[in-house]
C-alpha cells in the first residue's frame, strides 16, 4: 500500500513539473501596433511601405509575417527605421532576421561617407528577437525603444 501511494505521488510530481515547464517556454502574445504607438513620440515623420515596397526595397515578404509594423523616416536622409515583426514560423524568422542584419549593413555603407551624423546612429542600431518576434530599431532613442520592446513581453 505504501509503495502504491509513493508511486502515485511520484507520478503527480512528474506531471506537475512538465506542466509548469511548457507554460514558461511559450512567448507572450504581443500587439505590435501598441508597441509602435509607444514609439511615436520619439520618431520623426515616418512612412509605412506598402507590400510591394516591403518586398522590393527591403526583401520582406508579408506572407512570412503573422503581424508587422514597419516604418521608414520620410524626412530627408535621416536614418530612423523601425521593424516590428512577428514571424509566421521558424523558417520565416530566420529569413527576416537575416534581412534585418543586411538592412543595417546597407545603411552603414550608405551613411558612412554620405551622412556621417546618421552613420553614428546606425552604428547603435539594435536587432532584437524574442521567440518569433523581431525588432529592428534605428533611432537616436534606440535605448528607449529597446526598453519598450522588451517591456511588451513582461
Amino acid at each position: 500500500m505504501k509503495k502504491i501511494i509513493c508511486a502515485m505521488i511520484a507520478i503527480c510530481i512528474v506531471v506537475g513539473l512538465t506542466g509548469c515547464g511548457n507554460g514558461a517556454q511559450e512567448a507572450a502574445s504581443v500587439d505590435l501596433e501598441a508597441v509602435y504607438d509607444g514609439y511615436q513620440q520619439y520618431l520623426p515623420e515616418m512612412f509605412f511601405p506598402d507590400e510591394a515596397t516591403l518586398l522590393n526595397f527591403l526583401g520582406i515578404r508579408t506572407e512570412d509575417c503573422a503581424q508587422y509594423k514597419i516604418a521608414i523616416c520620410s524626412e530627408g536622409m535621416r536614418a530612423d527605421e523601425i521593424w516590428l515583426i512577428e514571424a509566421k514560423d521558424d523558417a520565416a524568422m530566420e529569413t527576416l532576421t537575416a534581412l534585418a542584419q543586411t538592412r543595417i549593413q546597407a545603411k552603414l555603407d550608405e551613411t558612412e561617407s554620405y551622412v556621417p551624423d546618421q552613420f553614428q546612429i546606425v552604428q547603435k542600431a539594435e536587432v532584437l528577437t524574442n521567440g518569433r518576434y523581431l525588432a529592428l530599431l534605428i533611432s537616436p532613442d534606440v535605448d528607449t525603444l529597446k526598453a519598450g520592446f522588451e517591456a511588451a513581453f513582461q
Partner: peptide, 23 residues
C-alpha cells in the same frame, strides 16, 4: 530615395519600382 519617401504616401506613380540608394 527622397522622392520615394514622398511618393509612398499617395502612390502618385502607381506601382513604379524604386531602385534608389544614397550615394
Amino acid at each position: 530615395y527622397m522622392m520615394m519617401q514622398y511618393e509612398n504616401k499617395d502612390n502618385a506613380l502607381g506601382n513604379i519600382l524604386f531602385l534608389a540608394r544614397g550615394g
